[in-house]
């Protein structure tokens, strides 16, 4: 089975589980949907490669939308902070509800990581043999980190870039300080580690 099929099957199974069973982390339905949407858009990147001047507008629109949605994949990793909903006081014995929710949240995060790696692999394939490939990938990673910061702390969604562009830019510039830059830096390092560890092993040639 190709990695592409695995990603789709596991997504629908995960959503089904969240819909059918009681869990504290039902917000993962929406968060993982956005991560999955970014992955599906990355699968369409070859279709939007620019072949002639007439295609520039449509392709740019698609690629910009994809870039705006792409941070959603790594954003899910920061949802791990919601483990604090529970005490995990293991000295008090096994509390099944806690570990059920732990399984739900962590499996969602693993899924998002899988999507992130597949997505970055698609981006790499899209860039082809460009000598700027590593630089563009790094730029995308930094943009994703900024996206995670915006989503997590300023509570903006990708769509606000379209609906309230000036407010978004103003809020970002206004909120940038030593701590936020450090956070963006840590998210960047985290993504570089993930890419370095997993990106080579997941290739388009392997059926993604």
């Amino acid at each position: 089975m190709s990695k592409r099929s695995k990603a789709r099957i596991i997504f629908f199974l995960y959503i089904l589980v969240l819909l059918c069973f009681d869990t504290t982390y039902s917000f993962m339905i929406f968060n993982l949907f956005l991560a999955f949407a970014a992955l599906e858009l990355s699968f369409l990147l070859p279709l939007f490669r620019i072949r002639n001047n007439k295609e520039i507008v449509m392709s740019m629109f698609f690629v910009v939308t994809f870039i705006l949605l792409s941070p959603n994949a790594i954003y899910v990793v920061t949802d791990l902070i919601h483990l604090t909903f529970f005490d995990f006081d293991f000295m008090e014995g096994l509390e099944l509800k806690e570990w059920w929710n732990f399984t739900i949240l962590v499996s969602g995060v693993f899924l998002a990581l899988f999507y992130y790696v597949l997505m970055m692999d698609q981006v790499r394939a899209f860039l082809g043999r460009s000598k700027w490939m590593n630089l563009i990938l790094l730029l995308m990673i930094i943009l994703s980190s900024i996206g995670v910061y915006i989503g997590r702390f300023l509570r903006f969604h990708s769509i606000h870039i379209f609906t309230e562009p000036l407010t978004v830019v103003f809020q970002i510039v206004h909120s940038l300080d030593y701590s936020s830059v450090l956070f963006i830096g840590w998210m960047t390092i985290l993504q570089i580690i993930i890419c370095w560890l997993f990106l080579d092993e997941v290739g388009v040639k392997n059926g993604t």
């Binding site: 509570r155 903006f156 969604h157 990708s158 769509i159 606000h160 379209f162 609906t163 309230e164």
Partner: peptide
């Protein structure tokens, strides 16, 4: 998303 964004503005 725009519909969603109209209601979810921070």
């Amino acid at each position: 998303f725009a519909v969603f964004g109209l209601f979810a503005s921070p």
